[in-house]
């Protein structure tokens, strides 16, 4: 079934929409969640929440790209789930490595912590990502959007794990400069 037809089912409030979405993108979203949570059961649960959230969001939302729309919902739920687990000290530290790495881009004495605009930050990050060379952009997205490990990224793009780590290090430096230039840090 085409995405547009599935979206149409959501608009008709036909519960088959969830079934079709799950059939088409359930495994993909589970992989997205597992990269973050490293736990099959939690990931399954996360995908179910994501499908529920999709059901509640569409309509009024009308996603042009259903796969990415659902992936982003899944990712956010998984991140929140991970943070909750960490708060309860229930493990999940592996998935948190990417979070820690991004801390490098933000000075510890961030004087304007309260004053930034989240929407502006999103635009700025999007602009930063677009302007990266393709290779770096893909690696950045695989690491910090999908939370894939350097090893997994290396296998995807035929790089060594070390090289991926070096490239990520450079990207974080660039990101730090970008955020400074844009006044976010």
């Amino acid at each position: 079934m085409k995405d547009s037809e599935i979206v149409e089912l959501y608009f008709k409030r036909n519960e088959e929409a969830i079934e079709k979405t799950s059939e088409k993108y359930g495994a993909y979203c589970k992989a997205v969640a597992e990269n973050i949570l490293k736990n099959p059961e939690d990931s399954e649960e996360c995908v179910n929440f994501a499908l529920l959230q999709l059901w509640n969001s569409v309509p009024p939302e009308k996603p042009e790209n259903l796969k990415m729309f659902l992936a982003k919902i899944t990712r956010n739920i998984a991140i929140n789930n991970l943070k909750a687990k960490l708060a309860e000290k229930r493990g999940g530290k592996e998935g948190f490595a990417a979070f820690d790495e991004l801390s490098e881009c933000i000075p510890s004495k961030n004087n304007i912590e309260e004053s930034f605009d989240a929407e502006e930050l999103e635009k700025s990050i999007n602009c930063f990502t677009k302007n990266l060379p393709e290779k770096e952009r893909n690696i950045f997205i695989r690491r910090y959007f999908f939370f894939e490990s350097p090893k997994e990224i290396g296998e995807r793009y035929a790089f060594s794990e070390n090289r991926v780590s070096v490239i990520l290090h450079r990207i974080r430096k660039k990101l730090q400069k970008h955020l400074e230039k844009e006044g976010f840090v």
Partner: peptide, 27 residues
Amino acid sequence: MNNNDLIFAIGRIDDELIEASEQNPKR
């Protein structure tokens, strides 16, 4: 701003960029 804000901002990257990264261009 903290890394959490950054993570969620990265979560709003354009769909086409994310999809482009899905390809597997082994050389």
